[in-house]
């Protein structure tokens, strides 16, 4: 469903301070196509009973991948910012496994980009969390 189209933008975004502090990077997912990857780390645990990564870390990953797709969108002209982002947590992430994420910009207007993102661990068809968001956008003026 989702794609990681704008690899250079994603590489730039994953290098931002918070992202690099959490180890976010670009790599290939199980299907051989690129995704943004959040490596498992004990410092990101949210539930000490189970060792599952905190939802907030998954929020960083999904916000980053959604933002990267908007930032790299060929019609965009300025840096982007999140207006709103809804995240559904479908299940706990598997302990010790990296989490992959991709997003797709499915609609843009002059000032807003609408994005959906997915995060999964071992099975691309069984997501850990999904995001739907709106981001600031400045569409290139159409040439007349």
């Amino acid at each position: 469903m989702s794609v990681l189209v704008h690899k250079i933008a994603a590489q730039f975004v994953a290098s931002l301070p918070l992202c690099s502090a959490m180890g976010l990077h670009i790599g290939d997912a199980q299907d051989g196509a690129p995704a943004i990857i959040l490596p498992y780390s004990k410092s990101l645990i949210g539930d000490p009973q189970t060792g599952v990564i905190h939802g907030g870390a998954v929020s960083v990953l999904l916000d980053t991948v959604c933002g990267a797709e908007v930032f790299g969108h060929p019609e965009n002209t300025v840096p982007t910012a999140t207006i709103d982002l809804r995240i559904d947590y479908m299940r706990p992430a598997k302990i010790g496994e990296p989490i992959y994420a991709r997003a797709i910009v499915y609609q843009t207007t002059r000032n807003v980009a609408f994005v959906r993102g997915t995060a999964w661990d071992t099975d691309i068809d069984n997501p850990v969390a999904m995001a739907a968001g709106a981001f600031t956008f400045a569409k290139k003026a159409a040439k007349s």
Binding site: S59, V60, D63, G67
Partner: peptide
Amino acid sequence: KKLIGNPMLPALHGGGVAG
């Protein structure tokens, strides 16, 4: 410093604020 998401402004990363 590690909370920054936009070094140009600078602004906090929305994901960190979400967390």
